[in-house]
Design a protein around this nucleic acid. Structure first.
Length: 806
RNA sequence: GCGGGUGUGGCGGAAUUGGCAGACGCGCUGGCCUUAGGAGCCAGUGGGAGAGAUCCCGUGGAGGUUCAAAUCCUCUCGCCCGCACCA
C-alpha cells in the first residue's frame, strides 16, 4: 500500500502559497525568529547533496512557527560572480538570461521540496535594485577610509584571468579552478578589514552558538601575534625595522634577513662584491609564486655584503636576503636567532653562521633550535630570567633607548575586492585627471552594468573595452573622466544581503534600520563549512561597519551558526566533474519530497558528511506508507476503560515528544526520525490488540504534529483527513507531561562484579532496599554468588544493582 | 610543525552524558501471502561455543581510574579538515 505522494504534495504546496503561510511581517508583540540558509549560486542543477541544508532550515522554520514564533525565512540568489559567469561561458549563454533561467528552475525545485520561504522578500544580487546598494555601501566605506586603492603584489589566477583575495587562494591554488596562482604587482581596490581585526577576533569568544571548528578557523585566519618591533642600524649607514615575537632572544641574533622585496635591498646590493649573484637571486625569488618558494625544500639566500649592528651589544652580524622572509608579514625583515628558531637554525647550518643559545634547553634536549620556555643564558642583563620576564625587560629597554616598542601583528590582510571580470557590480568610482578618484554621487547610482556580448576574460577588465561605459564626466569638475572598470568581488554582495531581506524593496535606502532592528540578528544561519573564513568573516566585518554607521542594531549578525555536512558518494563530494551526482528527479517521481526529506534527516549527524545510499529514500517511503496506513484505514476500536496498553502508549507518546523536542533543540535531527519510527511501530502493534479510540487519537495526532516539520505534505494531508479544521502548520507544537512520560515499570539490571547476570521488571519508584532484596532473591544471582562473600552492593534504583564479590 | 575533529556489526549510525553496546534504518537469510510490487506480513541477523537454557569475547591498539568505561585519564596508531618558511 502506497499513498499518492504526487497529488498530495502539489496540493499542499498550492495551499501554503495561497494562504501565504510563510509570509512574515514585523510584529513587535510577537517573539521573532529569523532563520536563513545561505543564499545559493543559481548555477548548475540541484542534486541530492544540496537538498540537505534546505531540509534542515525548513524543519527549523516550521518547528519555530509551531512554537509560536513570528518566523522569517527568506530566500535569494547569489547571482553575480565567477560561478555564474563561468557557467555562462561554458553554456555559451549570456549570464543574465542564463542566471534568470536557473533562478526559475531552482525556485521550482524549492517548491517541489515543500520548503517554506517568504518569497515576497526574494532578492538577487545581479539586479540593479540590489547592486545599487552594494555601490552605495562601497562609497560609504570609501568616505570612511575603509575602501582604498593601492598597488601591491596580488594573487592572479591565470585561468580565471582575475585577481583573488587571500581567502580565495587554497594551498597556492585558485579556490574555483585549482590553477596555481601567480604573483603580480597591480593597482587594486581593498577594504580595510584589518582595521577591525581586533574586534573580529575578540568577538569570536562571544559566539557561543557557533561550531568550535569555525571559531578556531577564524581565530587562526585573523592570526594575532604579540611581540616587539625595533630598529636595527646597518654598519655604514641606513637602518631597518624588524618584528619578533621573541625579543627575549636578541642576544642570540647572529644574522639578519631581509625579504627580496625589501626597500633597503637595492642600496645594500648595489656595489656589493657579489652584486650579480645577489641580483640573480632576487630576480628568481620575485618571479616565483609563493607556492614555488615553499616547494624549494631547504632554505636559500644570499649575503648582501653588509652588516647589521645588534643594538644590545654592538655586535656586527651579516645581513642576508632570503625568500623565506615574506615582505607581506611584519616588517619584511627579521633578526635571525638560530638557537631558538628552527628556520633560522636550518639557514645558519647551511651558510655556516654562528649559533648562540640564549635559552637553556632541558637536560634531555636532543633537537636543534629550542623554541620553548626556559632560563635565559648568554644574555647579559637578561640572564636568569624566564621567557615572559625577559620579554618585558628587553621591551622596556627598547623603549628607554627609543628604538622599539611592544607591537601586535596580524595575519589577516586587507580584503582585495576588485575583479577583472564582467559579471559583477561595477565599482562606482570615476577617475578624473584633476580631481583624482571621485565617488559617483548617490543620486547617480546605480552605475549600471552594461550589456556586453564578449565578456570572456582577457586579463583586463571586459568593461574597459566599452567606450560608452568608460567615458563619463567628473561629478566634481564636469570635465571628461573615466570610470573604474573593475567589478566587485561577489563576496561583497553576500556580506550584507541578510539585512536587505528585512526591507527587500526599499528604493530609498539600503534598508530601514527599524526593520533591521526587529529581525536582526539572524537566530539561525545554515550553510556549508567551506565559508568558514570567507563569507562568514566578511559578513561579520560588514555588519560591524554597518553597526558603526548606526544602521545595524547588532555587532554580530549570526546568533546561531550551523554548518551542515556534505552528501558524499563513492568517497567524494558530489560534483559534475567527478560524475557522481545523484539527481533528485527520480526520487521525487517515485517516492516524493517527504521521503527525500526524511532520508536526508535520517542519514546521519547534521554536521557530519553523510554517504548517499540509493535504498535510503525507498526505506523512508516505507515508513511514511505505514503512517499513511495507520491514519487512513479503519481500526476496530473497543469501548473499554483505560488499561495498561493505553498507559504504555500514552507514556511512549509523551517520552517521544520530549525526546524529539530536545533533539531538535540540540540539532540532533538524525535521531528525531527513529523516535517517530518507534512511536509509529508501537501504534501499529497497539491497534492490533483492541485499541481505544481516545488513546489512538492522542498518540497519532502527536505523531502527525511532530512529523509535520519533517514530512510536511503527508502530515498536513492526514491532519486534514482526520477532520481537524485548522491547517497543521498553524497548530502548536505538542507539549509533554512529565507525569505521563514517566515509565511505571523499568527493567532493572542486576550485575555481579559488573557483569549483567539478570534482568528484573520492577516498579519505577522502587526503593533501594526492595531493589536489593529482589536482586538477592533471584535464583540466577544466587547461582553466581555460590557462597562467595559479598563485599559491597551498589544500588542505583530503579536502574541497577551491582553485587561485588571479593 | 600548530590547531580542530574522528575511529562502534556487511553499511549509515544509536547509546537519555559513567550504568543492558549495537536503538532506528539499509542490506542480507528463512518463511507466509499475493489482481507479481521498487509491495505487505512474520521470524532471524556483532563474533565464537552449544540441540538448548546459557556462556565466553567484543566499541582502532596498550595501559590506568572505578563496583561499573564506547563514554573519564595516560600513551599509541589510523583517517579527515583547517592553517603554515607568519618571524
Amino acid at each position: 500500500m502506497t499513498y499518492d505522494h504526487k497529488a498530495i504534495e502539489s496540493k499542499w504546496q498550492d495551499r501554503w502559497e495561497a494562504e501565504k503561510t510563510f509570509e512574515a511581517t514585523e510584529d513587535p508583540s510577537r517573539r521573532k525568529f529569523y532563520s536563513v540558509a545561505m543564499y545559493p549560486y543559481p548555477s548548475g542543477e540541484v542534486h541530492v547533496g544540496h537538498i540537505r541544508n534546505y531540509t534542515y532550515i525548513d524543519l527549523i522554520t516550521r518547528y519555530k512557527m509551531m512554537q509560536g514564533y513570528n518566523v522569517l525565512a527568506p530566500m535569494g540568489w547569489d547571482s553575480f560572480g565567477l560561478p555564474a559567469e563561468n557557467h555562462a561561458i561554458e553554456t555559451g549563454k549570456h549570464p543574465k538570461p542564463n542566471v534568470e533561467g536557473q533562478i526559475v528552475r531552482m525556485k521550482q525545485h524549492f517548491r517541489q521540496l515543500g520548503a517554506g520561504f517568504d518569497w515576497t522578500r526574494e532578492l538577487a544580487s545581479h539586479t540593479p535594485e540590489y547592486y545599487r546598494w552594494d555601490q552605495w555601501l562601497f562609497i560609504e566605506l570609501y568616505k570612511r577610509g575603509l575602501a582604498y586603492k593601492a598597488s601591491a603584489p596580488v594573487n592572479w589566477c591565470p585561468k580565471d584571468q582575475t585577481v583573488l583575495a587571500n581567502e580565495q587562494v587554497i594551498d597556492g591554488l585558485c579556490e574555483r579552478c585549482d590553477t596555481p596562482v601567480e604573483r603580480r604587482e597591480l593597482e587594486q581596490w581593498y577594504l580595510r578589514i584589518t582595521d577591525y581585526a581586533d574586534r573580529l577576533l575578540d568577538a569570536i569568544d562571544t559566539l557561543d552558538h557557533w561550531p568550535d571548528r569555525v571559531r578556531t578557523m577564524q581565530r587562526n585566519w585573523i592570526g594575532r601575534s604579540e611581540g616587539a618591533t625595533f630598529v636595527i642600524e646597518v654598519d655604514g649607514g641606513g637602518s631597518f625595522e624588524v618584528f619578533t615575537t621573541r625579543p627575549d632572544t636578541i642576544f642570540g641574533m647572529t644574522f639578519c634577513v631581509l625579504a627580496p622585496e625589501h626597500p633597503l635591498v637595492e642600496s645594500l646590493v648595489s656595489g656589493a662584491e657579489n652584486e650579480q649573484e645577489a641580483r640573480d637571486y632576487i630576480a628568481d625569488a620575485l618571479r616565483a609564486s609563493e607556492v614555488d618558494r615553499m616547494a624549494e625544500g631547504g632554505k636559500t639566500g644570499v649575503f648582501t655584503g653588509s652588516y647589521a649592528v645588534n643594538p644590545v651589544n654592538g655586535k656586527r652580524v651579516p645581513i642576508y636576503i632570503a625568500d623565506y622572509v615574506l615582505m607581506s608579514y611584519g616588517t619584511g625583515a627579521i633578526m635571525a636567532v638560530p638557537g631558538q628558531d628552527q628556520r633560522d637554525w636550518d639557514f645558519a647550518k647551511k651558510y655556516g653562521i654562528e649559533i648562540i643559545r640564549t635559552v637553556q634547553p632541558p637536560d634531555d634536549w636532543e633537537g636543534d633550535a629550542y623554541e620553548g620556555d626556559g632560563t635565559t643564558i648568554n644574555s647579559d642583563f637578561l640572564d636568569g630570567l624566564g621567557m615572559e620576564e625577559a620579554k618585558k625587560r628587553i621591551i622596556a629597554w627598547f623603549e628607554e633607548k627609543g628604538i622599539g616598542e611592544a607591537t601586535v601583528q596580524w595575519r589577516l590582510r586587507d580584503w582585495l575586492i576588485s575583479r577583472q571580470r564582467y559579471w559583477g557590480s561595477p565599482i562606482p568610482i570615476v577617475n578624473c585627471e584633476s580631481c583624482g578618484l571621485v565617488p559617483v554621487p548617490e543620486e547617480d547610482l546605480p552605475v549600471l552594468l552594461p550589456h556586453v556580448e564578449d565578456y570572456a576574460p582577457k586579463g583586463k577588465a571586459p568593461l574597459a573595452g566599452v567606450d560608452e561605459f568608460v567615458n563619463t564626466t567628473c561629478p566634481i569638475c564636469d570635465e571628461p573622466a573615466k570610470r573604474e572598470t573593475d567589478t566587485m568581488d561577489t563576496f561583497v554582495d553576500s556580506s550584507w544581503y541578510f539585512f536587505r531581506y528585512a526591507d527587500a524593496h526599499n528604493g530609498d535606502a539600503i534598508f530601514d534600520p527599524e526593520k533591521a532592528k526587529y529581525w536582526m540578528p539572524i537566530d539561525q544561519y545554515v550553510g556549508g563549512v567551506e565559508h568558514a573564513v570567507l563569507h562568514l568573516l566578511y559578513a561579520r566585518f560588514i555588519t560591524k561597519v554597518l553597526y558603526d554607521m548606526g544602521l545595524s542594531p547588532v555587532e554580530e549578525p549570526f546568533e546561531r551558526m550551523f554548518t551542515q555536512g556534505m552528501i558524499v558518494k563513492d568517497g567524494a563530494k558530489m560534483s559534475k566533474s567527478k560524475g557522481n551526482v545523484v539527481a533528485p528527479d527520480h526520487y521525487y517521481e517515485n517516492f516524493g519530497a517527504d521521503a527525500i526529506r526524511i532520508f536526508e534527516l535520517f542519514v546521519g549527524p547534521p554536521t557530519d558528511d553523510a554517504v548517499w545510499n540509493d535504498s535510503g529514500v525507498p526505506g523512508a517511503k516505507r515508513f511514511l506508507d505505514r503512517v499513511w496506513k495507520l491514519g487512513t484505514t479503519g481500526h476496530d476500536f473497543v469501548d473499554r476503560p483505560e488499561g495498561e496498553s493505553d498507559r504504555d502508549l500514552i507514556g511512549l507518546t509523551h517520552r517521544t515528544i520530549k525526546r524529539v523536542t530536545d533533539d531538535i533543540d540540540r540539532y540532533r535531527f538524525n535521531t528525531t526520525v527513529p523516535a517517530l519510527m518507534t512511536l509509529s511501530n508501537e501504534l501499529q502493534s497497539y491497534v492490533a490488540g483492541g485499541p481505544r479510540k481516545e488513546t489512538f487519537d492522542a498518540a497519532f495526532d502527536a505523531l502527525l504534529l511532530m512529523l509535520s516539520p519533517m514530512a510536511p505534505h503527508i502530515a498536513h494531508e492526514l491532519w486534514e483527513r482526520r477532520g481537524h479544521g485548522s491547517m497543521l502548520a498553524s497548530e502548536q507544537w505538542p507539549a509533554w507531561d512529565e507525569e505521563l512520560a514517566r515509565e511505571e515499570t523499568v527493567t532493572m539490571i542486576v550485575q555481579v562484579n559488573g557483569k549483567v547476570r539478570d534482568r528484573i521488571e520492577v516498579a519505577a519508584d522502587i526503593t533501594a532496599e526492595t531493589a536489593q532484596e529482589l536482586a538477592l532473591a533471584s535464583d540466577k544471582i544466587q547461582g553466581w554468588l555460590d557462597g562467595s562473600e559479598v563485599t559491597r552492593i551498589v544500588t542505583r534504583p530503579p536502574k541497577l544493582v551491582n553485587i561485588v564479590l571479593d
